[in-house]
Design a protein around this nucleic acid. Structure first.
Lengths: 342, 342
DNA sequence: TTGTAGGCGTTATCAA
DNA sequence: TTGATAACGCCTACAA
């Protein structure tokens, strides 16, 4: 079995010669096995195996005007929300003939637009983009794309093609409602980065307060800096200085919540009595923290895997069925940090 | 400026016609601008711009027998140690003509081997692989690769080509030495996953104990499960039950350390008096925690960026200069969780 | 400095 | 069911 090494330049031609058929037949055996005779098929498979043949993706793409890549554009490399999404994407793509090509926009709509253009140039099998806040040019590109396009992370109006996510607005309202239901009457808000998705969460927070006739006062603190545990601490410090009446906080994400928890401990604020804390995303650490932290569970891995599945479905469905929206929802995970009533 | 949209199938031919030159000249203007006359170069650039031409990577790769991709193989998608590495890689690649292709081995040497084979098939510009524990077949592939190969995360003997990382063994020894220097006499070890890199850290821990004449007793607790904050708590619980004399722990990574910290708080162990805690990697949260947690800082982003740089260097250096090892080192970050002496 | 032409490894069309 | 044979879009000697 020397096959492992000797594939440096085994090409379809070699396989064909080895079996004594034309390259066309080998090609068919690979793409449409059903039209090749049983006998040849097995001989070809054996030859491929023993010669260690691997198709050249570039030649394939050039000749078929279609590459076997699924393009994915995410805003951030480091944010572990997206790590989970990627995990789902890679898992779902594993075992298929498709490979994943990743691009990072760094939360910049213009760079997202360029990435979309770049990816589309490769005639990908499908494209996965994050959210609904593309530039007009990007939207036009997606609209004209000749491959399935899936928007992830959100649900919302007018998807380009397909969509899988949840409502950040509703999730934030639910989290805020949870705080209020626990008896907190002066909830505050901690936010970072404040990209459009985050803004929608803020809007949910505000609308829920309003629905309960609660004034937000000076309790909304946010920054455009990227979020971090450290920042969570700073924001809580600012908030408590500006609005000492605050008795609970809804944090835009779990990092901020964790940082706020640490800061609360430094200030000897008792959780959940003096301060209730609710995060967002429900990363693994939330349940393990002391005290355990309430959060809004989102289905990130499922979003990634689901997006790939939507593309595969679209491929077999053939036609492009617009308006296909999958709402994965969310779930409030009540934990010690907001357990004031019980 | 309708260029943004109308690039659906603008090809080099179109640009050439638009300017009134041959495609060869356009191609040269793109690859070796210096051999094309100033006048044509600017006209071509203008045409490219106004037509919105984007080269077809597949055709490029096929014709030049070299693709503009840098292949990267990492063991894990979700582990944020690697997120930071990726961040460095993408940053360094940005603005160059190279794009990044990511593959995940899920800590399985065999799948790493297959990915290497797959990536090499595309004749990449360079290949970045994680660590030094490849299968023999993979090693052979890397040895024969006709592109620069960079191994990241570690330093060690016999790199295939180039290498950038640090010594996990030495880092663990240093961390253990720090604990001992702080007056802890019964340090324990918490480990998860226990891949070869982790094992080297354990070896460092053990050797350092031995150097101080300390018996490890029943204080080494590890599992092959992937690490998590929750797991850190469980492991500490096990450790304290099995070896109550433990007065400090060295954790294989920061997640375990954080989980151990929470568990210690649950058990009313005072940190750092009753229990010293040292993590590994120094993720951002460590300094923000309450109490702040000692860790071993590693330069993950720099490793990623450096790896890309090494490839770019190799490209211009021309020849493949073997034995090129960059040791980024590490740094002990002493914080409250081990501040027993002062 | 610029143009001509052959080829990169597959796929797909058309015959056989 | 199988085999020739053009593409696919670009690169690169080789010529001019």
């Amino acid at each position: 079995m020397k096959k492992s090494i000797e594939n440096k330049s085994v090409k379809m031609r070699d396989v064909a010669d080895h079996v004594g058929v034309s390259v066309a037949t080998v090609s068919r055996a690979l793409r449409n096995p059903e039209v090749v005779s049983e006998a040849l098929r097995t001989k070809i498979a054996a030859a491929i195996e023993s010669l260690g043949y691997l198709p050249d993706p570039a030649a394939r793409a050039l000749a078929s005007t279609r590459s076997d890549v699924i393009g994915v554009i995410l805003p951030s490399v480091t944010n572990n929300v997206f790590s989970a999404v990627m995990d789902g994407i890679y898992s779902a793509a594993e075992g298929t003939r498709y490979s994943v090509q990743l691009g990072y926009s760094r939360y910049a709509p213009l760079s997202e637009e360029n990435l979309i253009r770049l990816f589309l140039r490769q005639r990908p099998t499908g494209l996965i983009v994050t959210g609904i806040d593309q530039t007009d040019a990007a939207k036009a590109l997606l609209q004209e794309a000749d491959c399935p396009v899936v928007q992830i992370m959100e649900t919302g109006p007018a998807p380009h093609d397909r969509m899988i996510g949840f409502s950040h607005y509703q999730a934030a309202r639910a989290a805020t409602a949870h705080l209020i239901a626990q008896g907190y009457s002066q909830p505050g808000f901690l936010g970072a980065r404040m990209d459009p998705r985050t803004q929608r969460r803020l809007q949910g927070f505000r609308d829920e307060l309003r629905a309960h006739g609660i004034d937000e006062g000076r309790r909304v603190h946010s920054t455009t800096y990227p979020s971090s545990v450290t920042l969570g601490g700073h924001l809580l410090a600012q908030l408590m200085d500006a609005a000492p009446e605050t008795d609970a906080i809804f944090c835009i994400n779990d990092d901020l919540a964790l940082g706020a928890m640490f800061e609360a401990q430094r200030r000897n604020l008792r959780i959940p009595q003096d301060l209730g804390i609710c995060g967002f995303n429900d990363m693994e650490m939330m349940g393990a923290a002391e005290p355990s932290l309430t959060s809004v569970r989102t289905f990130r891995r499922e979003m990634g895997a689901g997006a790939v599945q939507l593309i595969l479905d679209a491929l077999s469905d053939g036609a492009r069925s617009d308006g296909n929206i999958v709402d994965l929802g969310f779930e409030i995970m009540p934990r010690h940090s907001t357990r004031r009533n019980s």
